[in-house]
């Protein structure tokens, strides 16, 4: 399993870490990692420091996560994307949509 999820109730944070490949095969697991968190103002930290590759369907999944976060009044923060992953985020100009912390 290449998704790790960590919830911290106190400061309304959900950390989702993705290892190796972030692609369509994770669709179900990825959704499950956030869909039950319905606390208002929850921030979702997406840790991509151990992600080696992501494809366009992963971008789609991030947008779904963003929708979810927006509905709760929280935000999505992408943390430490690797160079390869960052290149893909850059091409898609995702820094205009979500916060990316390098």
């Amino acid at each position: 399993m290449s998704i790790k999820q960590q919830i911290s109730e106190s400061n309304n944070q959900v950390i989702i870490a993705i290892e190796n490949n972030f692609d369509f095969s994770l669709h179900q697991h990825f959704r499950e990692a956030y869909s039950h968190c319905n606390t208002p103002k929850t921030d979702f930290i997406l840790d991509l420091s151990h992600t080696e590759y992501m494809d366009s369907s992963a971008l789609g999944m991030i947008l779904l996560l963003k929708d979810h976060a927006d509905n709760l009044g929280g935000q999505v923060i992408i943390k430490k994307p690797s160079d390869t992953v960052n290149k893909i985020l850059e091409i898609a100009q995702f820094h205009r949509l979500v916060t990316i912390e390098k």
Binding site: L59, L63, I91, A92, Q93, F94, L97
Partner: peptide
């Protein structure tokens, strides 16, 4: 270079 998020996102 890409200067905008993909079409249909926003």
């Amino acid at each position: 270079q890409s200067q905008h998020p993909p079409i249909g996102v926003l």
